[in-house]
Nucleic acid binder design. Structure first.
Length: 930
DNA sequence: CGCCTGGAAACATTA
DNA sequence: CGTAATGTTTCCAGG
């Protein structure tokens, strides 16, 4: 089933893009095919095409929807990506550049039409971007905001949606789910889903056709649906959320003051997963029960969260630095806006509800955005800004628009909108951690466990480092005297592409014990903590101001567009971003994600966690002992080695011998079991996990069996591997990647590869601290991903991944758009699903330079947008700079790396979740198909 | 008094 | 359908 669903999902999503690939082949083939296709596609699409960049952007836009979709897809996508990478790499050397890009692009590709997207995309994209940014709110209010957003409080209409949507939806299934959800939910989500759905469902059609077209992104807008959606959405929203208070109330859904009343059922529902929608809906309703639910906390006005408005800004400091940042960004922003406006506007207009538009219009002027004093206006002000963006952005607009409209009232001051945000890449985009001389690294990783607090609880403090201190992030290679802003948000830690976590939000911690100034902002429903990176501090920041807030599963799942399931989805990563303006007007955006952080009290106490392993590879003969370091190991813990085929099928599974005498809660010695085939000619990658019981498994860790004769590094072999069923193999020296192939792929590509990075392969795990987890690389950067687990989405991988990627891709594209031109990128995008997807688009500005600029992007384009993308090469971002270096050295291996991908291993764990998701997807897909 | 926490009861779902 | 195993969310209490 899952498979099916997945597949279907994928199809939907990007089906167009490479439907065949996805749809057709499930497992390995899937990858393989993808790769092939990718190549072909690329070729086709862009035969000559260069890479790039530009395209990507477009895609993105086009797909805002896509994004959503992909989100959903994501999981699977990953895999694809990998394949892509491989392909890319292998295949194209020529393209190599492209490849990378491709990877990134893939997503675009995802968009099926990618191409189309390209065109329009620009606009759309822009909007897209903007949207997010727009949202930002500042301050503490953020919480509220966040909440609102999530809940839709704000808005009006769809409050919810927006949030959800935000990235999430997209990711999620939205499409698929959306469909279902819609049905279920009804409108509410609709608007969001609107886009998503539209995309999705329609997508099939729509996308491809209409939407896809250029504006795809705008699709929302552009798409008739979109517009419609909004309306409907609004309604929904309204219903659900009503505006502010009302909304809250609604949101409050749950109402219940004390839990007593009833908790919302949510979670469980989610569990239901598939039903999800239906149930979800139901749930919510139930939850609504009238009770006001907790509003208290969030209610808008009140400031729900602790952070009161006041605090937010609190420190002058914050503002000041903010100001700085803004300043410089402003120009860029403005430019972007203008650009955006153009395209976006138009579309937007259509898509957007009247109200929204109005606002937009009004605001538009906004450019000033930044400014906005805000005042209470916050609502307004922020909205304004947003609106602008919104207008541009299809969905958001809608969403926000609606929200905004309603919102106006928001009492919160959120604040000031930071204009510049708007132009920034969406939070679900995958960005590299290194670009050119710059490298964003997590010098000190956060602890693997951090109990998140509920809104009903007081803060549980800032995330800490294993040493007792706090995480530390540093930007290397920046020699300017101008301070920068480090953004922090809570991202997912599953095997899908990194994206904002729907069930967790960063929580700003203030107080005498906090030495780092921070400021909250909202970006597409995701709270973003902005921390100053000062030259005087060597561009290093101690993150002692960030806690993690847990949102109730039921609340989130009820959202219209939300497709993710909260149950057992308790791992997160801290995601850091920095945007560096370049003299040429472009902006380089870097991202680094931390190792996974388990946020559930119970899971943290019971689930085994492998942070380090003394050996990552060994000859197939096995027999050697490995020391595993981590937590929650028990005398009866078991270590299971598994090998899965690309399609997720188990090829081999065996329990390794554990030295029970040496077992400690934090260490365990296991003997490497002999591989099933002692005559492998190339490295075979397998996974292993620690199991304390049926439902208590650690995430999968990677391990590579080497050919007795061959050295590890080999390259490629993909095929072989594939045949074996092994996902990756090799190369990886990095142990951890697993996660997502994406990483690997990385590639240099980039647009230019230029970037340096490109050259490098993905960075391995560099994380600074890395020590701990293996960090896999996650897409984002981080290494860590590991398997966290759970999340499983495994099976779907194939499918899902797609989605995801798409999403990412999209994102990538966005940036690109700006710079790159649309064109090419798009194409590529399409092709490349690339796992990498990430890479981004941005990359180079070159693009911008080039062509795109003009064209394409108009919207946000390059010019406008400030950023350029970076090339990410490594998309993964993660690379740690340092690591990178090394790796670079080893680059070759890289290639290899790419292959890998996916590991679906984890999936097993995830299964629960995955299944659910799948089910949802399947249903969705079904709908779609229908 | 308020922030942090660790623990755990009360609920909810899933097996 | 009842029960056990799991998970989530809300409370409590101590530092």
């Amino acid at each position: 089933m899952q498979d099916t669903s997945c597949l279907s999902g994928s199809k939907f999503t990007f089906g167009r893009v490479f439907p065949t690939a996805l749809g057709k082949e499930p497992g390995l083939q899937f990858l393989t095919s993808l790769a092939a296709e990718m190549k072909s596609a690329e070729e086709e699409a862009f035969p000559g095409y260069t890479p790039n960049v530009s395209l990507s952007l477009p895609l993105v836009r086009g797909n805002p929807c896509l994004a959503s979709q992909y989100h959903t897809l994501q999981s699977s996508p990953v895999i694809s990506m990998s394949s892509c990478h491989q392909t890319g790499f292998g295949l194209r050397d020529d393209n190599s550049h492209h490849n990378p890009a491709q990877g990134y692009y893939l997503p675009h590709g995802l968009r099926p039409n990618g191409a189309p997207a390209l065109e329009s995309p620009r606009i759309e994209i822009t909007a897209y971007h903007h949207q997010y940014p727009e949202e930002e709110v500042e301050e503490s209010a953020s919480l509220d905001q966040a909440i609102h957003q999530k809940r839709g409080v704000n808005s009006i209409v769809t409050l919810t949606l927006p949030n959800a949507d935000g990235y999430r939806d997209p990711s999620c299934l939205s499409p698929a789910s959306s469909a279902s959800s819609r049905s279920c939910n009804s409108d509410a989500s609709s608007f969001e889903s609107g886009f998503y759905n539209y995309d999705n469902s329609p997508q099939n059609s729509p996308w491809q056709s209409p939407c896809v077209s250029p504006k795809g992104s705008s699709s929302l807008l552009s798409c008739p649906h979109a517009p419609l959606a909004p309306p409907s959405a609004s309604p929904r929203h309204s219903p659900s959320t009503s505006p502010q208070i009302g909304a809250q109330a609604e949101e409050g859904w749950a109402g219940h003051g004390p839990r007593g009343s009833s908790r919302p059922n949510s979670p469980a529902c989610s569990g239901g997963g598939s039903n999800g929608c239906g149930s979800g809906v139901g749930k919510r309703k139930y939850s609504f029960n009238g009770a006001p639910y907790r509003q208290p906390s969030y209610t808008p006005n009140q400031s729900p969260t602790p952070s009161p408005r006041g605090s937010p800004r609190v420190s002058v400091t914050d503002e000041s630095w903010l100001a700085n940042t803004n300043q410089y960004t402003n120009s860029a922003i403005v430019a972007a806006i203008n650009a955006l406006t153009t395209d976006g506007v138009v579309d937007m207009g259509e898509g957007i509800p009247i109200k929204a538009r109005k606002t937009n219009l009004d605001h538009s002027p906004t450019m000033s955005l930044k400014t906005e004093p805000g005042g209470e206006e916050m609502g307004p002000g922020s909205e304004l800004l947003q609106e602008d963006y919104i207008s541009r952005l299809p969905f958001k607009k809608e969403v926000y628009g609606g929200d905004f409209l309603d919102v106006p009232q928001n009492p919160y001051p959120w604040s000031k909108p930071k204009p510049y945000l708007s132009s920034l890449p969406a939070l679900d985009w995958q960005l590299p951690s290194c670009s050119g001389p710059y490298s964003l690294q997590i010098e000190v990783q956060p602890k693997s466990h951090h109990r998140a607090h509920y809104e009903t609880e007081g803060s549980r403090g800032a995330v800490k480092a294993p040493s007792g201190g706090h995480p530390v992030v540093q930007l290397y290679g920046y020699v300017e005297s101008e301070p920068l802003t480090l953004q922090l948000f809570i991202g997912t830690a599953d095997d899908r592409l990194l994206r904002p976590h729907a069930f967790y939000q960063v929580h700003r911690i203030t107080g005498k014990t906090v030495s780092t100034a921070s400021h909250e902002a909202l970006q597409s429903n995701t709270k973003v903590l902005e921390i100053p990176l000062l030259p005087e501090n060597n561009m290093r920041a101690i993150i002692d101001c960030a806690g993690i807030l847990k949102l109730r599963n039921s609340d989130i799942e009820l959202r219209k567009g939300e497709t993710d399931i909260g149950r057992k989805n308790t791992r997160v990563r801290m995601v850091f971003r920095v945007h560096i303006n370049q003299p040429n007007g472009r902006t380089i955006s870097l991202q680094a994600a931390s190792n996974p952080i388990e946020c559930s009290q119970r899971s943290a106490q019971e689930l085994p966690l492998v942070e380090k392993q003394s050996l990552d590879s060994y000859p197939a003969t096995g027999g050697k002992k490995i020391l595993l370091s981590g937590h929650n190991f028990l005398p009866d813990s078991k270590v299971v080695f598994v090998e899965k085929a690309q399609d997720g099928h188990h090829l081999w599974e065996t329990e390794a011998k554990v030295d029970k005498d040496s077992v400690k809660s934090t260490a365990l010695i296991v003997e490497i079991p002999p591989y099933r085939n002692q005559r492998i000619s190339s490295p075979v990658q397998v996974n292993f996990y620690v199991c304390n019981g049926k439902r208590k498994r650690s995430q999968c860790q990677r391990f590579t069996y080497l050919s007795p004769n061959v050295p590890v590094i080999k390259t490629e072999p993909t095929d072989d591997y594939e045949s074996l069923g092994c996902p990756d193999l090799s190369v990886q020296s990095n142990p951890y990647y697993y996660g997502q192939p994406r990483l690997a792929p990385i590639i240099p590509m980039g647009e230019d590869d230029s970037s340096l990075v490109g050259g490098y392969p993905p960075c391995p795990p560099c994380h600074g601290s890395a020590s701990s987890a293996p960090a896999s690389s996650t897409p984002s950067s981080s290494p860590t991903l590991h398997d966290m687990s759970p999340v499983a989405y495994p099976r779907c991988l194939s499918t899902s991944p797609v989605h995801t990627r798409a999403g990412h891709l999209a994102s990538t594209i966005h940036e690109a758009p700006a710079s790159l031109g649309q064109p090419s990128s798009p194409d590529r995008g399409i092709h490349h699903l690339g796992p990498h997807g990430y890479n981004q688009v941005y990359s180079n500005g070159s693009p911008s330079s080039s062509p795109d600029g003009s064209d394409s992007s108009s919207p946000g384009g390059g010019a406008e947008s400030p950023f350029t993308l970076v090339p990410p090469t490594q998309n993964q971002g993660r690379c740690s700079p340092q690591s990178l270096l090394p790796e670079n050295a080893s680059p070759p291996p890289l290639a290899v790396t790419v292959k890998q991908e996916p590991q679906e291993l984890d999936q097993m764990y995830l299964d629960d979740v995955n299944e659910i998701i799948r089910n949802d997807l399947s249903s969705i897909s079904v709908h779609l198909s229908a």
